[in-house]
Design a binder for these strands. Structure first.
Length: 555
RNA sequence: GCGGGCGUAGCUCAAUGGUAGAGCGCCAGCCUUCCAAGCUGGAUGUUGACGGUUCGAGUCCGUUCGCCCGCUCCA
């Protein structure tokens, strides 16, 4: 079984994935494309198995709810390309078209051109000319030792009002009205003549130039905390893939590839309610591709630019949201364990307030289900987030589209926007977690260097059928067994080379069972079952093989 | 995005500026009665890409793409 104490080698895993047809670098013959990967034959089977298990367990046969009744979860498959206004309503467009600066402590962002500083024109004490000491921005009011304003003039008027600020700058008196203040050349938008401990001088405010932000990020205090050194380099956050619909590339037809599948569900909430005879609480589920221009794609398929999500939006009354939130955290963790992620490698983690996404601010929080990947070891990486999105999305779409999205609850005799609990899992990341969990070096075993210990339900190939030797009627019997099994499962038939080599090949593919026809089969109609993880063998009747595979693989 | 390392056969790696090779794997045949056994034969390369220097570049120089590590980042 996997040794969970030591991190496994990602390099070796990536090599095995390519060698055995799980995952290839995308566009490899052209040199590859950063942030994209292709699934090979075995990887596709693996991903399909994980996807089908989710769809079966969440949609076709959903879990039982707190009241003992099975939940109602309905499937959906919405467009990857949606109306451009969707992404304005969802909040994805707003913050990400301009250069943004992020405070690494609070995770808050502001537009770089909204960052404004108040400068001294002459040295005063420790302060130097041209270096920003107090910083303002358009963001909401910050802790008391920084200024927040929508314009330099406003910043200065706050400076006038706030005696503490004056103290920080060594200002004893303001001599002129800043709002009628001096023009000081290239655009100090406002200035004020002040008395300080070191004499009289100008103070003025202007946007902090981009090159100053880039060269001196450590010297600029954060507008949120006033701390220096917390601001990251300003950068363009073009998170979404732009595209155009229609044959003409015209700005009116610009839209985006979806960065999450969730919005398609919100767009169809009303359709589903109107057509499917459902009552709140219920869920809508969707599996599909999503696209994000990640700043730094890395760690194999963990952060790629094209990936696949498995999302449920579970609609409920706001009062019941905390209960459903707890419920889904439990259901989803159990599910990941059921597909083979067990032990200490999986954990739940509550988000801190600062890291909550924009849509989750008002909810009861976000739980991450995390997996200890080799590249995060001993830390963990996100596999799924269970978030309370409150009624944020339906409210946004109601405002932007004008559609009536309220739900009328007959039992409560109340019209309301449902709240949403969102278990949002990464299918691609799930595949990676399955690969990492299964990947087991076996230096002690003579046969194979690696075994992929997949849960039998997830294994891309369920079984292999071998004649022990390629003669004496064995291949014919093996072939008949193979023909029988292949209509129900992905199985392989192999007569070539030594039996040990064939077992070893199946170990690397993660095939859980090998059935071998040997001399004894000819006498008593039994075959050996060779188990992947232990290499143990036992005999079963040849006519029981199909039942054995069905029992062991859950199908 | 920054710094460092690395790109040669499917994989792991050789090859003073002078004819691109080995092992493993793969394929075929033989052999083989349970864990990459053995024998024989075979296929496989735009040396990541583009340009430059040179009589001649896998090797030197420049650019670019990709991968790995550390920062950074990851609404």
């Amino acid at each position: 079984m996997p040794d969970n104490d030591a991190p496994k080698s990602m390099e070796d895993l990536v090599a095995l994935c390519k060698r055995r047809g799980f995952i290839y670098p995308a566009s490899e013959i052209y040199g590859g494309l950063n942030g994209f990967w292709d699934y090979g034959p075995l990887g596709t089977e693996l991903k399909n198995n994980l996807r089908d298990a989710w769809w079966n367990d969440m949609v076709k046969s959903p879990p039982v709810g707190p009241n003992g009744e099975p939940l109602v979860i309905l499937g959906l498959d919405s467009s990857i390309i949606q109306h451009p206004k969707v992404w304005e309503a969802s909040g994805h467009v707003g913050g990400f078209n301009d250069l943004m600066v992020e405070d690494s402590e609070t995770k808050k962002r502001f537009r770089a051109d909204h960052l404004q500083g108040i400068y001294l024109l002459e040295p005063a004490g420790d302060m130097k000319v041209g270096e920003p000491y107090l910083v303002t921005s358009l963001m909401e009011r910050a802790p008391d030792h920084t200024l927040v304003a929508s314009s330099p003039a406003e910043a200065l008027s706050i400076l006038i009002a706030e005696r503490k600020m004056q103290k920080l700058m060594g200002i004893r008196a303001l001599k002129s009205n800043p709002l009628s203040g001096h023009s000081l050349g290239k655009p100090p938008y406002a200035a004020v003549w002040v008395d300080t401990d070191h004499g009289s001088r100008y103070v003025y405010a202007e946007s902090v130039p981009i090159d100053v932000l880039q060269s001196l990020p450590g010297s600029i205090p954060s507008p949120f905390t006033g701390d220096k050194g917390a601001l990251a380099q300003p950068r363009q956050f073009n998170l979404m893939f732009q595209t155009y619909y229609g044959a003409v590339f015209d700005e009116d037809h610009k839209t985006y590839l979806r960065p999450e599948t969730a919005q398609g569900i919100f767009l169809n909430f009303k359709n589903v309610v109107d057509t499917m005879r459902v009552k709140v609480p219920f869920g809508i589920a969707q599996i599909g591709k999503a696209f994000r221009n990640e700043v730094t794609p890395r760690n194999f398929i963990f952060r790629s630019r094209e990936f696949e999500q498995m999302e449920i939006e579970f609609f409920c009354h706001g009062d019941d949201a905390p209960m459903w939130y707890e419920y889904w955290c439990e259901v989803r963790k159990n599910w990941w364990q059921s597909v083979g992620l067990t032990g200490d490698n999986i954990q739940m983690r509550q988000h801190e307030n600062e890291e909550l996404a924009h849509y989750a601010k008002d909810g009861c929080g976000t739980f991450d289900i995390e997996y200890r990947f080799p590249f995060t070891h001993p830390g963990f990486g996100e596999l799924e987030g269970v978030a309370h999105r409150s009624d944020f999305d339906l409210r946004q779409h109601r405002e932007h589209s004008g559609a009536k999205l309220e739900y009328f609850d007959q039992e409560r005799n109340e019209r309301y926007l449902p709240h949403v609990i969102e278990p949002s899992g990464g299918l691609s990341r799930g595949v990676l977690a399955l690969l990492c969990e299964a990947f087991t070096p076996t230096p002690e075993r003579k046969g194979s260097k690696y075994v992929m210990c997949f849960h039998p339900r997830m294994a891309p190939v369920k079984a292999a059928i071998f004649p022990l030797v390629n003669k004496e009627g064995m291949p014919e019997i093996a072939r008949k067994l193979y023909d029988d099994l292949r209509t129900r499962w992905p199985v392989q038939f192999d007569v070539k080379q030594s039996i040990g080599k064939r077992y070893a090949r199946m170990d690397e593919a993660g095939t859980p069972y090998c059935f071998t026809i040997d001399g004894e089969t000819l006498e008593d109609q039994t075959v050996t079952v060779r188990e992947r993880d232990t290499a143990d063998q036992k005999r079963i009747a040849i006519d029981q093989v199909a039942r054995y595979v069905a029992d062991e693989t859950g199908g």
